[in-house]
């Protein structure tokens, strides 16, 4: 599914790399977690995969299903099935949720979206993520609470049906009930589309009580320093990044 090979990247027009010699392989149907202290490049990684304009890849490669995506535009990466659930979703005044999502579905599917089918599907999905129907006609994320923004990301995910999902700190800004609802929707999606791969970026293992990963990676000093199972996440919660010897005991996830 997704292979990151010896990746080097930096913010454009700066010198220092944020990630260096970073490698990770995520296969179909796998769930991976990346944890790490603040400022180690977790969110940068997610944006680089998506093709964010601020970052420059200076070495290595990112492949989706064996093909490099580095030369693809952001929208082409999305059309290939990559979905970034953003930490702080953008507010866009004047563009309604319905107009935006109908356009996006049309572009991703390559077909004209039937209005009746779209509304029915949207109503069902909004009901499942517990979002009020009136948000359909509101400007994109305008006036939404932190929780509503995150639920709106999950709604988009359900409608666009990606095959590789990145959750960038989904749990920030979500209360316990909302997190449970968001995770239930993701688990239902993974059950319906079992080949989907998931990369979770988080500080806290709370989300992992709802979505169980196979692999937990510790990102520190620009690359993955340690890989383990879910027990590693709980160990970090207990001991902190300084308490766990993250510089030793690399385990391959392949």
């Amino acid at each position: 599914m997704l292979e990151i090979k010896n990746l080097y990247c930096k913010v454009k027009e700066t010198e220092d790399n944020i990630l260096e010699d970073f490698s990770l392989t995520i296969k179909k149907g796998e769930i991976h977690v990346i944890m790490g202290p603040n400022g180690t490049g977790k969110s940068t990684l997610s944006k680089v995969i998506m093709g964010h304009y601020k970052y420059e890849v200076t070495g290595g490669d990112i492949l989706l299903d064996g093909e490099s995506i580095l030369n693809l535009s952001v929208s082409k990466r999305a059309k290939k099935g990559i979905f970034l659930c953003m930490q702080d979703p953008t507010v866009i005044e004047g563009v309604s949720n319905s107009e935006f999502l109908r356009t996006a579905i049309g572009e991703v599917s390559g077909t004209k979206v039937n209005l009746y089918t779209f509304i029915k599907d949207m109503e069902k999905a909004m009901d499942e993520v517990k979002l009020n129907n009136n948000m359909l006609h509101r400007s994109l994320n305008l006036g939404f609470s932190g929780g509503e923004k995150k639920k709106n990301e999950i709604l988009q995910l359900k409608m666009l049906k990606p095959k590789f999902i990145i959750l960038d700190e989904l749990d920030s800004g979500l209360d316990v009930d909302s997190l449970r609802i968001a995770c239930k929707n993701i688990n239902d999606y993974l059950e319906e589309y079992p080949d989907t791969a998931l990369l979770i970026i988080t500080h806290y293992p709370r989300i992992l009580e709802y979505i169980r990963p196979q692999y937990v990676h510790i990102l520190k000093e620009k690359k993955i320093q340690k890989t383990g199972g879910i027990e590693l996440a709980f160990e970090i919660e207990k001991e902190g990044y300084n308490g766990v010897n993250v510089m030793m005991g690399n385990e391959e996830n392949e």
């Binding site: 304009y53 535009s73 999305a78 953003m86 866009i92 563009v95 935006f100 996006a104 572009e107």
Partner: peptide, 27 residues
């Protein structure tokens, strides 16, 4: 950042501008 968000959902840049222009001018 607005263009990036719209593009990240599969909408090509040219179509992003159309959406933004419509939203801006029919406000």
């Amino acid at each position: 950042e607005d263009i990036f968000y719209l593009e990240s959902r599969g909408i090509p840049e040219k179509v992003c501008y159309k959406l933004l222009l419509n939203g801006f001018l029919i406000n």
